[in-house]
């Protein structure tokens, strides 16, 4: 049973990734803008153009190009970036940690903030506090992440400059790490200067990404909490002497989290999508920033590589959400 589900899962994953590969491959080639023209000076001869096209394989037909590229991908060769002239997989993997750290920090902030607001709202249900929290999360939700980014730059970069507004780490700090997970490796190695610097660079973009998701979690989770708090087992807990706060935290929260988890899973993929623009605003050296450069420069192999990686990331996240669902809900564990 488990084997069958796993196999089906793997198969659908492969099909999805193949579909993504086809779509992105065709789209970047159909879209206007020629990578070769951008690489050559204005006065280049026909022969120069033809030679360069042959070098990158653009002289072959679309299906042929696709087969060659896919063959490479299957062997782990994602091609060479046209602008940066280095292997795509190496480039992409060197930037992935920065984006992952940013997204995870944003997710942690969103879940912590959203849950806290939901619990307070449920605890004070029916009072002005609840109404106030509802109104503020509505307001937060109606402002998109990149606008929050700009607001933070203005607040904490210009008016009250306490946080770094650009880059990933203070360039004066020397980093000789084996991975690009500066925060995680810094923690493991005890290099707190690195951790402190990356976190202070990450805080604003992470907060910008987290705020709309936090508001969404707060609203949905509070609603679920209020429904669960009408259940008989919460009444029984009150009779047994537990305070309202402890009823919410011990009896209600876990059951209310189930529906929220689905939202968080779906929204986390949107959040990663949001990194593209937010990283740009904060000049954060992540995948998203690289993606925008790649698109501007028509760096086809790099675009393809980044999109495939994003797709794979989304699939992994959905898998993790499904797994955690089984963890939280004992009724799904057997069978």
């Amino acid at each position: 049973m488990l084997l069958k589900t796993t196999l089906i899962r793997l198969l659908t994953t492969a099909v999805t990734l193949f579909g993504v590969a086809v779509v992105v491959f065709v789209l970047v080639r159909v879209a206007p803008g020629n990578p070769i023209a951008m690489m050559l000076p204005p006065g280049a001869t026909e022969a120069d153009i033809a030679a360069l096209e042959a070098l990158y394989g653009f002289d072959k037909s679309l299906p042929e190009q696709f087969v060659i590229w896919l063959g490479g991908v299957l062997q782990g060769d994602f091609g060479t970036s046209i602008t940066l002239r280095r292997p795509v997989d190496e480039l992409v993997l060197s930037r992935l940690p920065a984006t992952l750290e940013l997204s995870i920090m944003a997710l942690v902030i969103a879940v912590a903030l959203g849950t806290a607001i939901a619990v307070i709202g449920a605890r004070r249900r029916g009072t002005a506090t609840e109404v106030g929290l509802d109104l503020s999360s509505g307001a937060v939700l109606s402002v998109p992440d990149f606008l929050w980014g700009l607001v933070f730059v203005l607040l904490f970069g210009v008016l009250w400059p306490v946080l770094s507004i650009s880059g990933r780490i203070d360039p004066q700090i020397e980093v000789d790490f084996t991975s690009n997970f500066y925060t995680f490796e810094g923690l493991l190695r005890g290099r707190l200067d690195v951790v402190q610097s990356t976190l202070s660079h990450m805080l604003m973009p992470a907060l910008a990404l987290a705020l709309p998701l936090a508001a969404m979690i707060a609203q949905l989770l509070k609603q679920n909490l209020k429904e669960v708090l009408l259940q008989d087992y919460t009444t029984l807990a009150r009779v047994r002497g537990f305070s309202e706060t402890s009823v919410i935290l011990r009896e209600a929260l876990r059951n209310a989290l189930l529906p929220t988890l689905t939202l968080v899973g779906v929204q986390f993929t949107f959040l990663i999508g949001g990194t593209v623009i937010v990283e740009r605003i904060f000049s954060y050296e992540g995948l998203g920033n690289m993606a925008i450069d790649a698109v501007i420069n028509r760096d086809l192999p790099l675009i393809q590589g980044i999109v495939l990686l994003f797709a794979a990331l989304f699939i992994v996240i959905n898998l993790l959400v499904d797994l955690s669902y089984t963890l939280l809900n004992p009724r799904l564990r057997h069978g």
């Binding site: 259940q231 029984l236 009779v239 047994r240 876990r254 939280l328």
Partner: peptide
């Protein structure tokens, strides 16, 4: 709340909803 919990208890109507499923 403390006084009631010390000296009283409830046997609820519906056993299907009175236990926390999680």
């Amino acid at each position: 709340r403390k006084t009631v919990a010390q000296s009283a208890a409830l046997i609820p109507q519906d056993p299907l909803t009175a236990l926390n499923p999680a």
